[in-house]
Amino acid sequence: MTTDLKAATTMNLTIDVAKCCGSGQCVMAAPDVFDQDDDGVAFLLDQTPPDTERANVDEAIASCPTGAITVVDG
């Protein structure tokens, strides 16, 4: 077990920008992981967030209206 949070990640995230409608639901759920650019399109602040973000990321994925976020467990 490592104490380095960065290492304790099992998530690898991607956003399909073509699908994103800029609703901002991901930002509401996980503000340390997602942000929105000048078109309101979401981008990742952290592509491999620590597991402490797991619940927020799950919430972001569940509330994303366009299914634009996917997580690859690694």
């Binding site: 073509a18 409608c21 929105q36 078109d39 309101g40």
Partner: peptide, 15 residues
């Protein structure tokens, strides 16, 4: 729709 929505999405995003 995507093109039109992106014209205003940023004006109503959480930030």
């Amino acid at each position: 729709h995507t093109r039109l929505r992106r014209m205003v999405a940023k004006d109503f995003m959480p930030k």
